[in-house]
Amino acid sequence: MVSFLGMLAIDARDVEKTFRSGWPRRRETQALRGVSLTVERGAIVGVLGPNGAGKTTLLSILATLLTPDRGTVMVLGHDVVREAGALRRRLNMASGRPSFLWSLRVAEIIAFYGRLYGLSGAALRRRVDGLIELCELGPYRRVPYSDLSTGLKQRVALAKSLVNDPELLFLDEPTLGLDPDVSVRVRAHIARLRREQGITIVLTTHYMREADELCDEIAFIKGGRILARGTPGELKRQIRLGEVIALRLDPARVPWLAEIPGVLRCVELDGWVECTVDEAEKRLPELLRALHADGVVIRNVQVREPELEEVFVELAK
């Protein structure tokens, strides 16, 4: 793995963006209201948030497709507005709703963009072949884009986004609408890109499992502001959702459980008592000791961290 420890791939400060559209009556949408985000080289950072939060807008600004209204954005050491040209050769982007020229074939699409990035001759052929193999598009290389299924189109988009060997890759919902089998492989692939080539990746997703699995860090954005930032574990602790200790007891009901210090609430579910506690490691022995002293038989115990999904729901409130 290539190491760029401590170097910043992205350093965005106080980025604001307002869309004005509609005529004759103007509509204004404040998509970003002062977003600051840093991403270290070689990291995978997930940008999560509800629909319309500003995720795509943020990624588009970082990728030079959109100019910010206010704020400074340095990407790979370049200013995204003043040095966009130099920056563009070093980054790329793919989205979960890709579109390319309908009647071009898979290999032609990748080759077209390859040439725009300065590849030609044998080098271009090698790159196209390599990407087709990597993205498992071999049987489809001569198929027109319009004849591909959603998942295949996304793989073409992924292949295209790697055509210039980018140092920084933006993936906007890369596994949107993919079947679980393909999603797993796309995720494995994203992880490998970082591991083997040290590519910095910023992705958005609505699948919490994906974010939990892939991302070193997560930025949670809502209403154009970053509300929380950290590793998936840190976020779970920050939100103070607590952890769950699930118990199967005999007798099944123990009314005084909720009164033990550190226990936030208890619910019964399918013969299980689920106690949400502030810190499982500390409360579990205390709980067991109290139950034992009361003569309650403990048949089964499980401890669960909250899912990232719960963090999301909590933050999105």
Partner: peptide
């Protein structure tokens, strides 16, 4: 061509 197939952004992402 790109407007019709909604792929305009790709070429303006390229250098």
């Amino acid at each position: 061509l790109d407007v019709w197939s909604k792929s305009l952004k790709h070429q303006f992402l390229a250098p």
